[in-house]
Nucleic acid binder design. Structure first.
Lengths: 355, 355
DNA sequence: CGAGACGGCCGAATCGATTCGACATCACGG
DNA sequence: CCGTGATGTCGAATCGATTCGGCCGTCTCG
């Protein structure tokens, strides 16, 4: 009934064993290769299998017995499609995929807060481990479920308590480095374009620093403020060029109060800011300097080369994968904090002489 | 042993049942809700569960018994990270996610040709269904495995034989429409920038039409050639702005043989072509017209509005999800062919008068 | 007041494969 | 000629939950 209605049900390994005249255990071993089998037997089993159209052990049954499903859940806090719009996340996924593949595992996409109820959540999916991405408070909830299920967890860019390995970045220090660079170039009037301050944030000026609940945003902001305590900050609604463009327009709106440099918290934002600057008739970097963050390749930004902080996004993913692998082995995984590298491009230059 | 080494093993539903003083079947029913249970019993079971730290049925066991895992595999033919660079695929994933969520299923990312061997493939993952994306011959192989396993399959943008539902696009007709538009505007000298002609294609002029093995590329090319048989074609190595830029440079290189219009097979390529045109000192659309394909929002292309073919990318994903859902119900799903809508932007205009 | 209906709960079989200790066989060296 | 290993195969238990027929007690309606 519940079976694929081809009338007859698929062959099982017992069927194959019977057909081959061996015991199920032997047949099983032929497929798993856990134990040596004589060539003759192997041949017989394999022949029987293909005769019956048996394509290998049912993963469901295997995973039950093994206690492993070969699936690592990746939990996002945003709409799945949105997550992949972010090149950094994409790169991380890449690294993650790289790292779990040799483990024989695949990546299951999960949403943090499933809206339509019935979806597969942390609770119902056959996961071996989970990787949480992001840092908003929302993840806390997911975290509890997962920890309760006794599944190894790793958190990327977020804080999940001390018992959960964390893959992070030296956001504050890195951002401070970029800020110092600008300071050294003589800049004093600075505007900051930040990533969203909160989930569901609408773009707008950031007057109250405490309003920032997203860790990454807060840390990078702090780094910038370390050097320029008086800088103004405008928070975008996402890491997109268009958001940066909108922010840039705001920032360059009043000719009398134009900053000489803009610190953007992502390369995409920076690209938008540059475009806004061009629109406002400002040359980059002669009239205004712009720094980014991430070190990704912004498609279509040429000939500009962003002055930015290069973060090892792929490595972060890979590290998360490695941590998962370790935990699966029973070895406790340590938190890792990656370091960004400052890269000077052609979007920053000496502060223009005072008008 | 193989257990999570917390010393004691996790509680099972039988433990809970015992603790609550009911039979395992009753306890099971409390969680699944398949059968009415008295409130008193439910309470007892739930209490027992939380006392034992039982977080719900083990998905592995459940899926074995149920014959369903709640997982739909999505097979890409490229590096996972690369796949998400394409906005169209991203949108499709979105639609797909939407459509399978109410089904209670999640999306498992799979690579067609797992390089490192041991990865989870179509053969080893506990899939309820699979969605193949893309169209190269490589997928053929995957297809066989999946069909052999008796798993429902849907193919997006590709041909998999008549017994496999296919979600497609009227690529040729649509592209022809754009070409006709240009023709009506008086254009006669046309260059086409195509998507990759083959997997692992290096960018370059396309001299031999038969070299094109990728379906989408071929169909759109055919549509353009229907109207402009003599058009030259340059095949990019991927759907990126930078690729379009590179192609554009080639195309605009020789001032004596510049086309008056460029048909790009994707919006991203078109954006790059426009940028190349600007670089060459050509105005769009006064000196050269450019059309795209996809109808996506190209981040940072403003103020241009591409003349393009809008394809219902999200709907394609949704349709694939729906097809999967149907097949899971035992209802055979039909192939669907979506229609693109021509949208005129400000990147096409009358052909310039002859110099 | 009795019979049928129905809500609730239980038993037992089942899903399909894996695993490990036991066992048979055969070769070889002392 | 027999003990000792090595090699390969088998049996049986197990993984954890689901499901369906059946049974029992109560409620309802005639």
């Amino acid at each position: 009934m519940s079976r694929q209605d081809t009338g007859i049900r698929r062959a099982t390994i017992s069927d194959v064993a019977r057909e081959a005249g061996v015991s199920p255990s032997t047949a099983s071993v032929v497929f798993s290769g856990k134990t040596p089998v004589s060539d003759a037997t192997r041949r017989r089993v394999l022949d029987a299998a293909s005769a019956l159209g048996y394509t290998g052990p049912d993963p469901r049954a295997a995973s039950l017995r093994r206690g492993r499903s070969g699936i690592v859940g990746v939990v996002f806090e945003e709409h799945l499609g949105t997550a992949f719009l972010d090149p950094v996340k994409t790169l991380m996924m890449d690294g993650l995929a790289d790292a779990v593949t040799p483990l024989g595992a695949g990546l299951l996409l999960l949403r943090d807060h499933e809206p339509t109820g019935s979806g597969p959540s942390l609770t119902t999916a056959p996961l071996d481990a989970a990787v949480l991405i992001g840092c908003s408070g929302l993840l806390r909830e997911s975290l509890e479920t997962v920890k309760a299920r006794g599944i190894p967890v790793v958190v990327i860019e977020g804080d999940a308590g001390d018992d959960v390995p964390r893959i992070g970045l030296d956001n504050r220090e890195a951002q401070r480095q970029a800020a110092s660079h600008l300071r050294a170039l003589g800049h004093r009037e600075i505007a900051i374009v930040t990533l969203p301050a909160r989930v569901d944030w609408q773009r707008g000026w950031l007057h109250d620093d405490t309003a920032v609940t997203v860790d990454v945003t807060r840390e990078r902001l702090a780094g910038a403020l370390d050097v320029f305590p008086d800088a103004t900050a405008y928070a975008a609604a996402g890491s997109f060029i268009d958001e940066g463009f909108a922010a840039g327009r705001e920032i360059f709106a009043d000719p009398d109060r134009r900053p000489t440099a803009v610190i953007a918290q992502s390369d995409l934002l920076a690209a938008g800011v540059i475009r806004a600057a061009e629109e406002a008739g400002l040359r980059v970097p002669e009239d205004v300097s712009v720094t980014g963050f991430d070190g990704i390749v912004v498609d279509g930004l040429a000939p500009y080369e962003l002055t930015t902080l290069v973060q090892p996004a792929t490595d972060k993913g890979r590290a998360a994968g490695a941590a998962v692998a370790a935990m699966l082995e029973g070895i406790p995984a340590a938190s890792i904090r990656f370091t960004c590298t400052f890269r000077e491009g052609n979007t920053t230059g000496p502060a223009p002489a005072l008008a």
